[in-house]
Design a protein around this nucleic acid. Structure first.
Length: 485
DNA sequence: TTTTGAGTTGTTCGA
DNA sequence: GTCGAACAACTCAAA
């Protein structure tokens, strides 16, 4: 039996259960030193945003307590990562270091370099898959062997693969080293904001592995049956709300896959498949990020580099603050600001509004979401924004422009969502609450609304903005075809 | 190898 | 109200 310890380098896998790197370390029967290194500058140009840092603090705190219950600790260091790892190897005499993979381009490059250096020095460096059902490089189009750019074909190919392994977890306590290396305290990392703006976020979430498990169980028991219909209605609690837990690896997709597949009778299989399909979109986003790493800051469809985006700081701010005059859009932006999260349906609507109606570059939206979402995830964020802007992997036509009023009428028919997030419209009745500018003056007066004062007039006219967006697409197509001549 | 056809979280228009 | 068609272009599987 070896007495030299193994380092388990935690990253976005902040859990004990279903953690392959931790399990592999524990199975060596040598001492285990769990480790987290804070090195945001190595994630440029997408270092964790403010909401992410808040969640990370809570999640690390939770992980520290879970490890303590297993007779272990979490050693905290700050970057540069390579320096921190070398120092720890020297201090502890570790001969092995295990971690679970990340897929962001900057980190793929960094981790590959680290692994190579460690192996050269005779350190056993091994990486594992904790966060995906299917590794991006294992899924290829049948004939061409190229990566997929269309979801349905991608997901079909995934489902033709063998099922993902059932999760397997460490049992019992972890072997502690003879002496613990020094550690920063969690507060030293300065992850939490100096001004406490997180009260709304705190009220809405329970970060950490236990909170993740609870969210899954609640969803499996109460939400899943109605998921296929309820998931599109932002006013209902129809979604799993697992996204931040998944992002930080407080729960893994394999666990979700197996819990949902094994817990239900055949009559729920449609709902299970409908939810797993959403996990499929997440897999697809990772697939695209891995194979097209430039897309974090450039359109997948390169002709969009010619798209005539508008630069308008004032209008961008109206969108960010949720005062565009379109109630569903504003409700979404305010939900985001207050809770660090936005319902998926409304993410599509607000993103479409920014890129099509306001014709502001999707990167501006991506940056805003990146800073404000507790589930900000480079793969999902990049994919989602490019999808919405029409410059990404989407087989749908460019002229599919969401109508924010129609979306509101279809998916927030009772206006529960709008009323929750826009209290100043509370007294306005259907159908006018979806489009206050069309309400007759007496009704506005009765509802105590003065358009332009208590609630803004629409920043753009939908029909006009739609025509202008289509014209801009046309212009881009012309420029491309003349460039080809 | 080439061709065909389905897909593509939507909207608008006109019957 | 509901319904089908039209709105391009491209990916990918199957013939």
């Amino acid at each position: 039996m070896s007495v030299s310890p193994v380092l388990v380098w935690f990253r976005l896998d902040l859990r004990i259960e279903d953690n392959p790197a931790l399990l592999a370390a524990a199975e060596r029967r040598s001492p285990v030193i769990p480790l987290f290194i804070w090195a945001p500058e190595e994630e440029n140009p997408w270092p964790p945003g403010a909401a992410s840092r808040w969640w990370l603090h809570q999640s690390l705190d939770s992980l520290q307590r879970s490890l303590a219950l297993r007779g272990s600790r979490l050693v905290l260091r700050s970057g540069p990562t390579l320096d921190a790892l070398k120092a720890l190897i020297a201090e502890t005499g570790a001969e092995a270091i295990f971690w679970n993979r990340r897929y962001e381009p900057a980190l793929v490059a960094r981790d590959a370099a680290i692994k190579e250096l460690l192996l050269e020095q005779g350190i056993e460096a091994r990486s594992f898959n904790a966060s995906l059902l299917f590794e991006p490089w294992t899924i290829r189009a049948k004939g061409t062997r190229r990566p997929f750019q269309m979801f349905s074909a991608f997901w079909k190919a995934c489902l033709n693969q063998p099922d993902p392994d059932a999760p397997s977890s460490v049992r019992g306590p972890l072997t502690a080293p003879a002496s613990w290396p020094r550690s920063l305290s969690l507060g030293d990392l300065r992850l939490e904001p100096l001004v406490d703006w997180a009260s709304g976020i705190r009220a809405a979430w329970e970060p950490g592995e236990a909170g993740a498990r609870l969210a899954l169980e609640r969803f499996a028991k109460k939400g899943l049956g109605e998921y296929p219909s309820a998931r599109n209605e932002p006013g209902r609690l129809g979604t799993s709300r697992l996204s931040p837990h998944l992002h930080f690896g407080e729960i893994g997709p394999r666990t979700i896959w197996h819990v949902l597949r094994n817990s239900f009778e055949a009559d729920h299989q449609d709902a299970v498949n409908s939810y797993l399909r959403e996990l499929g979109w997440r897999e697809f986003a990772y697939h695209l990020l891995f194979h097209f790493p430039q897309t974090t800051n450039a359109p997948l469809r390169s002709e969009f580099s010619k798209f005539p985006w508008r630069v308008d700081e004032r209008v961008l701010k109206l969108w960010q603050r949720g005062v565009t005059g379109y109630p569903l859009v504003d409700a979404g932006m305010r939900e985001l600001w207050a809770t660090g999260w936005m319902h998926n349906r409304v993410r599509m609507v607000t993103a479409s509004f920014l890129t099509k109606h306001l014709r502001i570059n999707w990167e501006e939206g991506a940056y805003w979401f990146w800073d404000t979402l507790v589930d900000a995830d480079l793969a999902n964020n990049t994919f989602g924004w490019q999808w919405a802007a029409g410059c990404g992997a989407d087989a749908a036509p460019y002229f599919r422009i969401f109508n924010p009023v129609r979306q509101s009428e279809r998916f927030d028919a009772n206006c529960d969502y709008i009323k929750r997030w826009i209290p100043e419209l509370k007294q306005l009745d259907l159908p006018w609450i979806h489009k206050p500018w069309e309400a007759p003056a007496p009704i506005l007066e009765k509802s105590k609304i003065r358009l332009g004062k208590s609630y803004p007039l629409p920043v753009v006219d939908h029909a006009k903005a739609r025509q202008e967006a289509l014209a801009a697409f046309e212009q881009m197509r012309i420029e491309r075809s003349t460039a080809l001549v």
